[in-house]
Simulated scan of single mutants.
Amino acid sequence: MEKKKVSIVIPTVGGTERRKIFLDKGLESLFAQTIPFDEILVLDNSQLQNVREGSKYATDKRVHWKLTGGHLVNALDSWNMAVKSAHNPYVTILGDDDYAMPYAHEEIQKCLQIANLAYLPVMKVNMNGDIVKRPPQNLESEISSNEFRYNIMIGRFWVSLMGVVFFKKDFIYVSGFQDALIPHYGSADFYLWYRLSTQQSKVACSTQNCFCYLHNAYIFDWVGEISSFKDFSKNIINHANLVEQSLVKLGITKTKIFPGGKNGKQKFIDQMCIAKYIQGLSIGIKKKNIEFLSQTRGLINSPISLKGMLTVPIKLIIAFWYKLTN
């Protein structure tokens, strides 16, 4: 088996002591790989540019530290710089509070023998290490890029910042992470993976759970620039229509695009709007930011259905309960 050269990059904003602890834990998980990564790169986008000083591995030669100058306000810019700074043909991303299973790189190598783009299942775990969401099981080792896009659309494949290994040249060709007020959760450009898959005819899938996403802050700890709820709700219908049109062109019937039966498209719009609304409200409360709080008043004028609107108080209670108990 010809070994492919892979970089794993960790963009970080530093900040809290908790993040420093989790960053070191993430690095330890990379040091413990059955096959070492060819490069571990940490991109420091903190204001004080001092993440390295707070790490136990500040002088460890296995880690390549890079500074942004602390001027990248948008998290997407930080992620793009991290990928472009990698020195190998293949790249995968790790969140600064997440970690890898010991066999993750071994699975990546198996996948790269099949295709230049691979899906690596990610488990969501809580602060105690308990699994709160398992990825899909019994995956085929190879699927078409059309199937990959469809699995993301229906929620079977969960990918945000990590969970994919890709060809760096493809990432640059599709312009990396973008933020054009397309509806998304947090600052993640969810549809980067759609664009990347257009560059490959097939996608390899690992049959093992490779990474752990720390589900520690729910909606209360987003970083980076976040488009306003007003802009979000204005764009969501056009966005849903474009997703629908593109998947129909792939040969997928309309009834199978949005999960949830004949009202699946509206349920999708409701889900996205509610998540965005609660996100803005929680940030406004946490940061005492009047601007964010005022943006959330647009709920009534948004395209959310009456049924969806009635679920908002329940979801708010769940969100705050989760915050208080974790």
Rank of each mutant, 00 (worst) to 15 (best):
G284R: 04
Q137M: 05
F258A: 02
P36D: 09
L306C: 13
D170Q: 03
Y185R: 10
L41P: 03
M153G: 13
V174E: 07
G280E: 00
L23V: 13
G251I: 09
K286C: 05
N126Q: 08
N80K: 04
Y150H: 15
C111T: 03
I314P: 04
K323R: 10
A82G: 10
A118L: 06
L72Q: 07
A82I: 01
Q49Y: 07
R156V: 15
Q47D: 14
E225P: 05
V51Y: 00
F211T: 08
L41D: 12
Y173L: 12
K307S: 14
F22R: 10
P89H: 10
Q47V: 06
A118M: 03
E225I: 12
L181Q: 04
I226G: 05
R52H: 14
W65M: 12
A118Q: 03
A58F: 09
T311R: 07
V132T: 06
E107S: 01
N241W: 02
F167N: 10
R195M: 15
Q49W: 11
D44R: 07
P102Y: 10
K230P: 05
I304R: 00
Q178S: 12
E28H: 10
R18I: 01
L242N: 15
K288N: 14
L214H: 11
I182P: 01
E106C: 08
Y119G: 08
R62E: 14
N116S: 13
G224N: 02
V51E: 00
H71S: 04
I274Q: 13
T59P: 08
K267N: 11
R149E: 14
Q295Y: 06
G176E: 10
G163M: 08
V174W: 07
S305P: 02
G69C: 10
F232E: 06
G70Y: 00
I257H: 02
M162I: 07
S7H: 02
V312W: 00
V159K: 06
I317N: 14
K25Q: 11
S46E: 06
V243T: 15
S145G: 13
G15W: 01
Y119M: 08
K25F: 05
F258R: 01
Q279K: 01
E17R: 04
F268M: 11
N216W: 04
L299T: 11
K315H: 13
V165M: 11
L94S: 07
Q200V: 14
P183M: 00
D189H: 00
N74P: 02
S201Y: 03
V243G: 03
